[in-house]
Design a protein around this nucleic acid. Structure first.
Length: 516
DNA sequence: ATGCCAGCGTC
DNA sequence: GTCGGAT
DNA sequence: ATCCGACGACGCTGGCAT
């Protein structure tokens, strides 16, 4: 297939509003792919590259040659070119990569270039990703959507599923199942503002797990072979030898475990997330800080898949198979009062919150359903908008991303604590665009600095130490609640108020409870 | 040797 | 990670 | 109920300029 046909499909998909119409367009393109182009072609149609890393991002795409006038590229040729770009490394690699990229773009038409930029940049914005492509694969192959979705979530590999469904049909697709050693897409949790709302979603009785502020791990063991995967199915086995050792020491033959790994201090209390993250990301040999695994689910045990078993069955098997110190804190509750007590105890122990779980629900691979509901404390502050950034994509033409500052009583100025674009409705975006145009003092085409007069109420999960912001602290997961037109900037919260919240996981945190 | 930038990962 | 909009 | 897109925080690594 010609690459320009993918580009045309992508443009048509982007111009189409309806889900079903997008799926039809994608399915039509999938049917036209040659068998050996399905892997790359299906990735492109989903807005992805076949390679996870290429070393090319938006900065590397800024300057590009004039587009070709006639399309000559095939899907296979593009695939080969990108494969080479992705393998370049070592001294001189940046120049070489630029060279290869220039050659590819030089023979691409304007439409093809647009697609390539979207694919390399990871922001194709055609309104269709792996989720819709799975449906399109089902349509094109004439197999049930559920079968495609399940294969996708169990293998974590869109390309493999597309090839299986389109070349092999339902039988080949059915062959894709949970395999020990191959990571599956983890089940996720919805979120709720409090344990009452969470219990409403799950029903009672419910099981309440401590929510640990670490990184998600999925550990597979077959005999002496142990592998550790992240939430995005990255293999981090080599970076977590202590987790490997812990699982290898268990008197079990075959397991797939789901859990969280985190760094602890000398008292066994959680360290700040940044320390866990840093430790999990480093490939260096000697690691002073250990990551401790805590598991909360068992997906496979000695030949038996447990995915479709109710939670209570899986958790009972987990409790039988693992020592208690490797299992996450867990209680069964009947009432909201009991749930509130468990939540309070988790926070008192320095943990992030809780996850409320329905005991009868299966392990719903890749789903974020009502069976698991997370609850975390929330803080709020009244901050001052220091600047706003022009939006992109569907927010083009609107002032979107807010720069937030706390009042500094020492200087009479403001200390920037971070940015947010979340929590804004279209109506609010419209309003704030007008408002900040009035307050604007400078616009460089990207950031619009404004007079620091508008107060906004911000919700956030916690404070983290910051190497970037002048106060040395930043907000985690900041989002807009509402504008405070009843408050002047002089009445906004101060940097001292922010500092007094304390960094979660720091020695003297926990002395303050959240604002509400 | 050191610092910066870009890319990529975690949340 | 969170959130709003669209289907 | 799902999917998508709009973008946040920090930290590590590799390549490169100084």
């Amino acid at each position: 297939m010609r690459f320009v046909d993918i580009a045309a499909t992508s443009a048509a998909v982007a111009a189409t509003g309806g889900r079903k119409a997008k799926i039809e367009l994608l399915a039509d393109a999938l049917r036209r792919l040659e068998p050996d182009e399905i892997a790359a072609g299906s990735a492109y149609l989903a807005g992805e590259l076949r390679q996870r890393q290429t070393g090319v991002g938006y900065a590397g795409l800024r300057t590009r040659p004039a587009p070709a006038l006639e399309p000559t590229l095939t899907v296979a040729a593009v695939d080969a070119a990108i494969a080479e770009i992705a393998t370049v490394s070592g001294t001189g690699s940046q120049a070489r990569r630029r060279e290869l990229l220039g050659a590819l773009f030089g023979v691409a038409t304007a439409d093809e270039q647009r697609l390539l930029v979207g694919l390399f940049g990871g922001e194709l914005r055609q309104g269709a990703q792996a989720g819709l492509l799975a449906e399109a694969v089902a349509v094109a192959a004439g197999v049930p959507v559920a079968a495609v979705r399940r294969a996708l979530l169990l293998s974590g590999d869109l390309k493999q599923v597309a090839v299986a469904a389109l070349s092999g049909g339902a039988a080949t697709l059915a062959g894709i199942s949970l395999r020990v050693g191959t990571p599956l897409t983890p089940m996720l949790a919805q979120s709720a503002p409090d344990v009452g709302a969470a219990l409403l979603a799950t029903g009672a009785p419910a099981v309440i797990d401590t929510k640990l502020d670490g990184i998600r791990i999925q550990v597979h063991r077959s005999g002496d072979e142990v592998a550790v995967f992240t939430r995005s199915l990255d293999d981090i086995t080599a970076r977590l030898p202590e987790v490997v050792a812990a699982v290898r020491a268990l008197p079990l033959r075959e397991v797939v475990l789901d859990g969280e790994a985190m760094a602890l201090d000398e008292q066994g209390r959680p360290r700040p997330f940044q320390e866990t993250s840093s430790r999990a990301a480093t490939r260096a040999k000697s690691n002073p800080l250990a990551l401790v695994p805590y598991f909360f689910d068992l997906l496979h045990l000695d030949g038996a898949d447990l995915l479709d078993e109710p939670g209570r069955v899986r958790w009972a098997a987990l409790a039988d198979a693992l020592p208690a110190e490797l299992i996450v804190g867990r209680e069964t509750v009947e009432t909201e009062e009991q749930a509130a007590a468990v939540f309070a105890a988790a926070l008192a122990a320095g943990q992030e919150g809780v996850v409320v779980k329905a005991p009868e629900a299966p392990y719903d691979v890749g789903r974020r359903g009502a069976a698991w509901v997370k609850v975390k404390p929330r803080h709020t502050l009244d901050l001052v908008v220091l600047a706003v950034e022009w939006g992109h994509g569907r927010r083009k033409g609107w002032l979107s991303n807010l720069h937030l500052g706390a009042r500094d009583p020492e200087t009479g100025g403001f200390v920037m604590l971070g940015k947010t674009f979340k929590g804004l409705t279209d109506e609010l975006l419209r309003w704030q665009t007008e408002r900040f145009k009035e307050l604007a003092v400078e616009d460089d085409g990207w950031v619009v600095r404004v007079r620091p007069e508008q107060v906004v109420e911000i919700a956030f999960d916690g404070v983290q130490t910051s190497p970037r912001y002048p106060g040395g602290v930043a907000l985690r997961f900041a989002r807009v609640l509402r504008y405070r037109d009843d408050k002047r900037a002089a009445e906004a919260d101060t940097i001292d108020a922010v500092r007094s919240i304390g960094v979660t996981g720091q020695p003297d945190s926990g002395r303050n409870s959240p604002a509400d």
